[in-house]
């Protein structure tokens, strides 16, 4: 608001934007365009083809998309539901100091993704993990082989670890949008807690909940390091498949890999797009 509107029409002013634009073009946009082009080109004849996308219907690829979407969807839902409740518990916590500590903790832990996190879960829930042994010794409960940290259910636990704090950080500002007076006036009009949340609270939070769901989905869908460390080839995920193709560990046709990359790009792009739109809506509530 303090930024004065200056003459923005000057063409020469755009020169200052060129270095940054060139950087983005060189390391992001042009490579992605080439990828898109490559996904429609037959390797030997260099002619246009849809074959790579047709090939995506092979069970192994369908399977990895199904697994990735299931994993991301599930951990996003778990993250949104638990994160909202935890966020509200933090938001309503009486001591400011405790609130600040919990927010800082969320800030730090949401960055603890990747390899060290995956390994930490092996330490507690691996075959000889701390919790695995604890359950066995004191409750005679055999976690394995029903559960395994190296499987789909293990991945869910590890993913929720970085999803939860992210949701907490995302939802906290949204609670500020629910004014205390609204709750009071709703009560004075005879609405109980449930009706208040159903009629007012949840609708106000809705844009933030949708933003959370889509951001968490994209966050999980694009994740690679955690999955690579934990399941490696035991479970087929989109990002793992693409990774194998880059490393040249599979002799699959590159074209299928590019088609796969483009489809996952569309899925991620859509999620982030919806996230952006929902965030803009959410700001309307948390403002003023």
């Amino acid at each position: 608001m303090s930024v004065k509107q200056r003459k923005t029409g000057h063409n020469s002013d755009w020169l200052g934007f060129v270095p940054f634009l060139l950087f983005c073009l060189a390391f992001e946009i042009i490579p992605i365009i080439f990828l898109l082009r490559g996904s429609f080109i037959e390797k030997t004849t260099h002619l246009f083809t849809l074959q790579h996308y047709v090939d995506l219907q092979r069970p192994i690829f369908v399977n990895s998309f199904v697994n990735s979407i299931k994993l991301s969807g599930l951990t996003a839902i778990i993250g949104v539901v638990l994160g909202t409740f935890i966020g509200y518990a933090i938001y309503r916590w009486p001591s400011e100091r405790v609130r600040e500590i919990l927010i800082t903790l969320s800030d730090v832990t949401t960055n603890f993704a990747g390899v060290p996190l995956a390994f930490a879960f092996v330490v507690i829930l691996g075959m000889n993990g701390v919790i695995t042994q604890f359950l066995l010794r004191y409750f005679q409960y055999h976690l394995y082989p029903k559960f395994s940290i190296y499987s789909f259910s293990g991945l869910i636990l590890a993913y929720v670890y970085f999803q939860l704090p992210l949701m907490v950080l995302l939802i906290l500002p949204a609670f500020a949008g629910i004014k205390k007076e609204w709750q009071e006036s709703a009560q004075s009009l005879g609405a109980d807690t449930f009706r208040f949340w159903w009629r007012i609270g949840i609708p106000v939070l809705m844009p933030s909940l949708i933003a959370g769901l889509t951001l968490l989905f994209a966050n999980a869908f694009g994740a690679y390091a955690t999955a690579y460390t934990l399941v490696e080839s035991k479970l087929s995920l989109v990002t793992l498949q693409i990774g194998y193709m880059i490393a040249g560990e599979v002799r699959q046709d590159q074209g299928v890999g590019m088609a796969m990359a483009i489809v996952s790009l569309i899925i991620m792009g859509l999620s982030i797009g919806i996230y952006q739109a929902a965030t803009l809506r959410a700001r309307r509530w948390s403002k003023s």
């Binding site: 992001e28 880059i246 790009l265």
Partner: peptide, 20 residues
């Protein structure tokens, strides 16, 4: 341009860069 990287899975960026 600043939000774009969030919409690109890192493996896809790696694949694109390695090929170009």
């Amino acid at each position: 341009l600043m939000i774009l990287p969030f919409g690109i899975p890192m493996v896809v960026l790696a694949l694109a860069l390695v090929q170009v």
